[in-house]
Amino acid sequence: MLIYLTEFLAHYISGFGVFKYVTMRTIMSVLTALVLSFIIGPKVIRWLIRLKVGQSVRLDGPETHLVKTGTPTMGGVMILFSVTISVLLWGDLTNHYLLIVTLTMLAFGVIGFIDDYKKVAYKDPNGMRSRTKYLWQSIIGLIAAYSLFAMAQVPTEHELLIPYMKDTFIHLGAWTVVLSYFVIVGTSNAVNLTDGLDGLAIMPTVMVSAALGVFAYMTGHLYFSAYLTIPYIPGVEELTIFCAALAGAGLGFLWFNAHPAQVFMGDVGSLSIGAALGVVAVAVKQELVLFIMGGIFVAETLSVILQVGSYKLRNGKRIFLMAPLHHHFEQKGWHESQVIVRFWIVTIFLVLIGLASLKIR
């Protein structure tokens, strides 16, 4: 909203003209989300404590986690609030990319909120039935995927870009909707599975979001996209505002989620921010790069799939000591903080590899 005010004021005070640039609004977006998180964080935590919205810990998990029972969950609402307010203040609300990713994030947040509520109200770590949750994720994911497909402005938006290869695309046509659906829903569940330790999911989210913001800015810039030989998609640069807001809100949340956590994000946070990352990756045509940069999310998901498959097909035999993957390393003797920091380091490495695709072509 402030973009319209600053445009008006620029007619009288030239200095306000700086806010028409995406770069300036990106800076303001990340700062706004970060400050908002710091301000509302303590209030949200106290509110959740009063409501007795405590986390139920799975009994078959590491014994060290039992002390976390009762820690306030559903803290993801502070992320959603900070991101939404920041986008409303600094984003161009006529931009359909920005509207789609924000509305998708909030819709997945509603699913997560219901799931969390069932967990805390009935003291059931499983929450919403998996089929029901996946059904609603699928409905919203398909709506988002089709919206991006229907509102495409250039043919490149219906193609799959192959990273590290110059001008190499796979034309998908209407199959783009299917790919987008799996990216959005898959990333949502992958972040959800990763959110099992203090700060484990949020910091990789911050790093991947920041990197996707770089891709969004370059992809929406006519000259930069031509120089880097990546698709030019007009208007997609506005997603830089969203990515910055998510990174800022994530850092603000990490202040309270760092070990030992004062609050957990819950499904209301993990499902929504995962879906948001998926939508941004689809919009900027970096689905495969997201797969690389979000390697930790991918590994966590694969560990669960392989564990379940092995258990069912090999008469109860397991591949990992425990799934998801972070619990496997805990069972091997790694301290929780070791697992967290090492996963962060791996994410930094993978994000740099992903960003390298801008030049290595």
Rank of each mutant, 00 (worst) to 15 (best):
F224H: 13
S225E: 09
S225Y: 00
A226L: 13
A226T: 13
A226C: 03
A226K: 14
Y227D: 13
Y227I: 14
L228F: 12
L228W: 01
T229N: 15
I230S: 02
P231C: 05
P231K: 02
I233Q: 03
P234H: 13
G235F: 07
G235I: 02
G235Y: 08
V236W: 02
E237G: 15
E238K: 04
L239F: 14
I241K: 05
A244M: 15
A244C: 15
A244S: 15
A244G: 15
L246N: 03
A249H: 07
L251W: 11
L251H: 05
G252C: 10
L254I: 11
W255S: 12
W255C: 10
W255M: 12
F256Q: 09
A258N: 14
P260V: 10
A261R: 09
A261C: 11
Q262F: 13
V263T: 11
V263G: 09
M265F: 10
G266N: 03
G266A: 00
G266W: 05
D267N: 13
V268T: 14
V268D: 08
V268P: 05
G269V: 01
S270G: 05
S270A: 14
L271V: 08
L271M: 11
L271R: 01
G274R: 06
A275R: 03
L277M: 14
L277V: 09
L277W: 06
G278E: 03
V279G: 06
V282D: 02
V282R: 00
A283W: 04
V284H: 02
V284R: 01
V284E: 05
K285F: 00
K285S: 08
L288M: 14
V289C: 04
L290K: 10
L290T: 07
L290Y: 04
F291A: 12
I292D: 00
M293I: 09
M293R: 07
G294T: 09
